[in-house]
Design a protein around this nucleic acid. Structure first.
Lengths: 217, 217
DNA sequence: GACTCAGTCAACACGCTGTTGATACCGTGG
DNA sequence: CCACGGTATCAACAGCGTGTTGACTGAGTC
């Protein structure tokens, strides 16, 4: 299908541009990840799917993990955005709601991008860049939680106890693994309908030693 | 479950017995896993290390993952044994101690076999048998915890709340991931010196809504 | 019209996996 | 003591996936 006559001075060439190709590779990767794991997708599969040859793939990406990294980056930004939508101010007006909404935001984002999330979790084992990116997500989330716990203690809503940071780390890793187990269909795992509630309740007990902490008075 | 009916060889066999070879392969695998990941160990490495050729390796194991499975099996049994040493009766005489000791037993076992543990965690992504074995460890641990929580509720030591099983699942996954993150050197992770204390405290708060539940009266 | 340069790919080199078929070893029963 | 059958062994082969090389194309530039 040769492209119809295009303005000679237009930026479109008779063959697809580099951007088109890059997008085609990303789209192919996302589609194939819905069917099978990254390790079962060859670079040739990605190249063929994007209508190019294998060597040409290397012109656009260093490896298939680099493709995943690009996909993951988008998801991570979405998760970040979703979590940031919940205002810190809600922590004082309705603490349980604050925690529930942040936990829920993360869960929804990763659930909505299940293939990429699962592929990333697996690639984290083998790829440094994926590990670092994931690490930064966890660090950001942990930092925010630690800060929030400290401010709750400062205003007297939460009792003193374990270092806030330790609490935040342990609870964050709980969320990470619980959500992953559910998405991956591991056994044993929480039910889709309960994850957020269960995790939320454990967070409240860990932070406040009660499931109904008081808002600011 | 291995070689039950292997003929007893004469003391002066001219070449090593099959058992010797099998052990040599396992020992080589354990040694190499201390240096690098399973994916960076070729079957030839294992064969060479055991003083045999690659095809001969296949006479003993179906794949390198099968070797890991054998190693993991030993660790899993050790963890099981370590956890079972803590008597259920301790749950009524000294609840915090019961939970701490069980959590600690798991941690110590897997820490003491770090290379195998980390390799198993990675292989779980790609290998069904490893996944199933690991799954069974988590299931056993979760079941025991769920039962214990229910009995604490029955005797009035723990308040009602989330389904005991959901609580057990979430807390177990927290332990799994927290311990793994520490062993793998992930960021962020708890410090070696604090893991058990932090996890223990969160368990107590989640189960009892206090860190000092009463023993039986 | 010569020159660039992004873009493209056939063909190669390499490393790892898993299999085949031939062979050596050794205990056992005739 | 010999030949038979299971155990054990490996050279050689077949196949797949990766990453690289070097040559080619065609659109824009001077």
């Amino acid at each position: 299908m040769t492209a119809a006559a295009r303005p000679v001075r237009g930026r479109r060439a008779s063959r697809p541009t580099g951007d088109d190709r890059e997008h085609a590779i990303l789209a192919t990767a996302e589609r194939l990840l819905g069917e099978r794991a990254l390790r079962d997708i060859s670079i040739d599969d990605l190249a063929k799917g994007a209508g190019i040859s294998r060597p040409t793939f290397y012109f656009y990406f260093r490896s298939k993990e680099a493709v995943l990294l690009a996909l993951l980056d988008r998801v991570v930004q979405e998760a970040d955005a979703a979590a940031t939508v919940v205002p810190d101010s809600e922590l004082v007006t309705d603490p349980p709601r604050f925690w529930r909404e942040v936990i829920s935001a993360f869960y929804r984002t990763f659930r909505d991008h299940r293939p990429v999330t699962l592929a990333a979790a697996e690639a984290r084992c083998t790829n440094d860049e994926v590990r670092v990116l994931w690490s930064s997500v966890m660090a950001a989330w942990t930092d925010r939680a630690a800060t929030a716990i400290e401010s709750e203690r400062a205003r007297g809503a939460a009792p003193p106890g374990l270092p806030a940071r330790d609490l935040a780390i342990a609870l964050s890793t709980m969320n990470e693994r619980s959500m992953h187990a559910l998405l991956a269909g591991d056994e044993p795992a929480l039910a889709e309908s309960d994850v957020v509630t269960v995790l939320h309740t454990i967070w409240l007990n860990a932070i406040y030693q009660t499931t109904s902490p008081a808002p600011v008075v």
